[in-house]
Amino acid sequence: MLLIHCPYCEDSLPELEFAYAGEAHIARPADPSTLSDEEWRDFLFIRTNARGPHYERWRHISCGRFFNALRDTVSDRFLMTYKAGQPRPQLNEAAE
């Protein structure tokens, strides 16, 4: 069982307290009506399915907050977690 760091609680807690919530940094378009069918399809369904570092969303069930994480899908290691709304960190930042 993983320990996951909630950036709001500032604590590393057992995986059981968390839920995966899909890929991160896919913002809902401000005005969906201006999108073509293809663009809307891509927003709904097309994901990177990364092998390796993956930007993704998690929810800390205990505090109720959504946050972002960078997790390696091969090793299942969390490289870092950060608050929702923060810009996508670069990989070398995560390594530090």
Partner: peptide, 13 residues
């Protein structure tokens, strides 16, 4: 509730 929280926290803060 989770779905509402998701939109409120991440799309329309």
């Amino acid at each position: 509730l989770t779905m509402m929280e998701d939109y409120l926290q991440t799309e329309w803060p």
